[in-house]
Write a protein that binds this DNA or RNA. Structure first.
Length: 695
RNA sequence: GGACGAUUAGCUCAGUUGGUAGAGCGUCUCGUUUACAUCGAGAAGGCCGCAGGUUCGAGUCCUGCAUCGUCCACCA
């Protein structure tokens, strides 16, 4: 019956996780029959690009806490695991690996390269799932999914064809963001803007019929002037009044282009005149469409010049820029150069400067889908936590563009139409996650039982990338919201408030923390810091605190076990009369902590719950009650009280620190002990009246 | 350029509807009391970012400013 003097997480965690798996309770179908009402969370599938980081750990801890809480409350809980193929991202890491071996994906060829990625996926997919086990996550492994497993591919196909038949998917040549390194189109959301020092070049365009007059345009991309097909000014701008409709001579190319007007032109920027390159800029493209301007593509998919005077043909962008500037200077067209700081779009995966080029791509019309995605949020059927995310969510939808869903990479779902070689944006499949994982498009029992899911927890930065798309997909294909509550959790930052990044070496590996402090300590330390959506500047102090707390729980339990011996005791609340005043007090305080913990977890206030539990256990129970128990115990009655208080505390703590609570539970002398603390009944409390008057 | 959030003890953070500032870690003092030295008892340490305003009273409400962060945006 004696517990070892100190708690050794390493010895306990593996053993306990095995016990849980063998109990079958991770699987809702194997829970006791009393668990009837379904409660579902589908894990945000980690990318198979690599190992889990602190963000994943935080997210998983939140989900496991909720699931364990709900399971103890008697729900038929399903927490479904899985991983995401993560198109461009995974392709890139595998390409990087190949590059180290001196190879490129083109050396291997498409088929071999994809085999290579599958090998990577198998390796890292397994690592990820094992890491989740180390964290103590109570996921139903029998339902593990991958966004490219067979059934899932069927779902993607079905969804694509559904939109296609509806006429919402269309193919068109549009200016898209293009990564010349990844050789693929990117959606707006896949761009990252970086501040860069650049220059603003002022170039003179002479009037065709009067070489003494000219318009000066300002540009940060002089090389694109080779593809100019107009100059645009604001219709209200008096400076250009007599010039509208006239022709200008495009320098270096020597071709006539018109002066047009457009409301988009900012009178105050540069010279008030914009050189219009419809092929290589979104705004210019729009202006071009309005004025039916010619689209001259001068930059190709590899970032080289085409359709330009011979001396520039085939050059790279930056080389061309130098040459063009030099030539303009020499020929007297360059008026001046200014220093200029601006935001440059970069590929979010490889950080190459992204080009805008016209390209034939598949687009999903967002007009109706944006409305569909907005409605349940507006109506309050889907709630964001914190609620402040509702506004930016709806704002973004009101200004949305059609979604470019095709990608020119090799790793992903092929477009399910004859003669199409491209693959789909990775988010096209992620969008189906809450129901495709449950078997859709088949009408499975799981789908019927577990959809809609209950809670989604996710990081802030994929709110638009992912959450929006799951909502409209859920509404479109299932006619029901995919989840009710969206928890947008904190970003885990470094101590200095910077983003954790593997490449910068500022990342902390959650597995190292588990190794050093134990899984429970790591979990509790994280939970302790979850205050609303407030970002977390990670410090190890909290994990250390978690470790000390576990030790405290362990030793308090040792004490209780020593005092209560081997006699099986009731687990019901002691109702004896003549309890000591300390007995009465701890039972009263316990009742309060049961109530507050229940309420705090329900409201997703994990940090608050953790703080209160810590204070209760350490101070009320250990410092005060146990000390009094040593001198004022009333024998058997007090023994019941101390055992009951410990057992109830373990139940309350279990969602946060599952391993140690289970280990102790397994040794407690209680009647009718369940196979696992996981399925012990969550403590109930007598509801107190709200809003007590202040004294 | 817009939106949102942050600014409280050396560090990381709590502070519910306005009523004399709290925790963990760190520091200092004392303590080998029948669970725990990963402990116990106690202490030091804060003009609660700045400037105004409302109020009997403001860390808490209002206005402005500063710094930092995140997201969004077609200023070439």
């Amino acid at each position: 019956m004696d517990l070892p003097k100190t708690y050794e997480p390493k010895e306990v965690e593996g053993k306990i996780y095995k016990l849980w798996e063998e109990s079958g309770f991770f699987n809702p179908d194997k829970l006791p029959k009393t668990h009837k009402k379904p409660f579902t969370i589908v894990i945000p599938p980690p990318n198979v690009t690599g190992e889990l980081h602190m963000g994943h750990a935080l997210n998983s801890v939140i989900q496991d806490t909720i699931i364990r809480f709900k399971r103890m409350q008697g729900f038929k809980t399903l927490w479904l695991p899985g991983t995401d193929h993560a198109g461009i991202a995974t392709q890139n890491v595998v390409e990087k690996k190949l590059r180290k071996e001196g190879k490129s994906r083109f050396d291997l060829g498409r088929e071999k390269f994809i085999e290579e990625i599958w090998a990577w996926k198998n390796k890292y997919g397994d690592i990820i799932l094992n890491q989740l086990k180390k964290l103590g996550c109570s996921l139903d492994w029998s339902r593990t999914r991958f966004t490219m497993d067979q059934g899932y591919s069927e779902a993607v196909k079905e969804a694509f064809l559904h939109y296609y038949k509806k006429g919402w998917l269309y193919k068109g040549k549009r200016v898209v963001s293009w990564c010349p390194r990844c050789q693929t189109s990117l959606s707006d959301l896949e761009l990252e803007y970086e501040e860069e020092k650049g220059k603003l070049w002022y170039i003179k365009y002479l009037l065709a019929d009067d070489k003494n007059k000219f318009i000066t345009v300002a540009t940060t991309r002089p090389e694109t002037m080779l593809g100019d097909t107009a100059v645009a000014v604001n219709p209200k701008d008096k400076r250009f009044k007599g010039l509208i409709g006239k022709k200008l001579i495009l320098p270096l190319v020597n071709k006539e282009i018109p002066v047009v007007t457009d409301d988009l032109i900012d009178v105050n920027f540069g010279t008030g005149a914009l050189k219009v390159t419809p092929a290589h800029d979104f705004v210019d493209y729009e202006i071009g469409q309005r004025h039916k301007l010619e689209i001259v593509q001068v930059i190709d998919e590899k970032g080289k010049m085409i359709n330009v005077p011979e001396k520039y043909s085939g050059l790279r962008i930056l080389e061309t820029r130098e040459k063009v500037v030099a030539d303009l200077q020499e020929q007297g067209y360059l008026e001046k150069i200014e220093e200029y700081q601006h935001q440059i779009p970069k590929c979010y995966r490889c950080h190459t400067t992204v080009e805008s080029i016209p390209s034939l791509q598949w687009f999903l019309n967002m007009k109706e889908l944006a409305k569909i995605a907005g409605k349940p949020v507006k109506d309050g059927k889907i709630k964001f936590h914190p609620a402040s995310f509702k506004k930016p969510y709806l704002d973004w939808l009101s200004n949305i563009k059609d979604w470019c869903v095709s990608r020119q990479i090799w790793w992903g779902h092929k477009i399910p139409l004859e003669g199409e070689n491209d693959v789909l944006d990775t988010w096209f499949s992620s969008a189906l996650w809450p129901f495709a994982t449950l078997g859709w498009p088949e009408k499975t029992k799981d789908l019927k039982t577990f959809y809609p899911t209950s809670v989604l927890t996710t990081a802030r930065d994929i709110l638009n990338l992912w959450v929006t798309r799951m909502i409209f997909s859920g509404m479109e294909f299932m006619r029901k919201i995919p989840f009710e509550d969206v928890i947008i959790h904190a970003t885990v930052l470094t101590r200095d408030g910077k983003r954790m990044s593997k490449s910068l070496g500022t990342g902390i590996n959650p597995m190292d923390l588990i190794e050093k402090y134990g899984a429970d300590a790591t979990r509790f330390g994280l939970s302790f810091q979850i205050m609303g959506g407030q970002d977390i500047k990670f410090v190890e102090d909290n994990i250390l605190m978690g470790k000390k707390f576990c030790n405290k729980i362990w030793n308090a339990s040792r004490f209780v076990l020593q005092k209560t011996g081997n006699t099986p005791l009731l687990i019901n609340k002691p109702k004896d009369k003549d309890l000591t005043s300390a007995d009465k007090k701890i039972l009263k305080t316990l009742e309060k902590i049961v109530e507050s913990t229940t309420k705090d977890i329900k409201a997703f206030n994990f940090g608050k719950a953790a703080h209160k539990l810590y204070d209760f256990f350490w101070h009320d129970f250990c410092d005060v009650y146990i000390e009094k128990f040593k001198t004022q115990s009333s024998g058997a009655k007090s023994q019941k009280v101390i055992l009951y208080t410990l057992l109830t505390s373990l139940k309350l703590l279990h969602p946060f620190i599952p391993f140690i609570t289970e280990e102790i539970y397994q040794q407690l002398p209680v009647k009718n002990r369940k196979k696992s603390l996981m399925v012990e009944k969550w403590p109930s409390y007598v509801k107190t009246s709200e809003g007590k008057p202040k004294s």
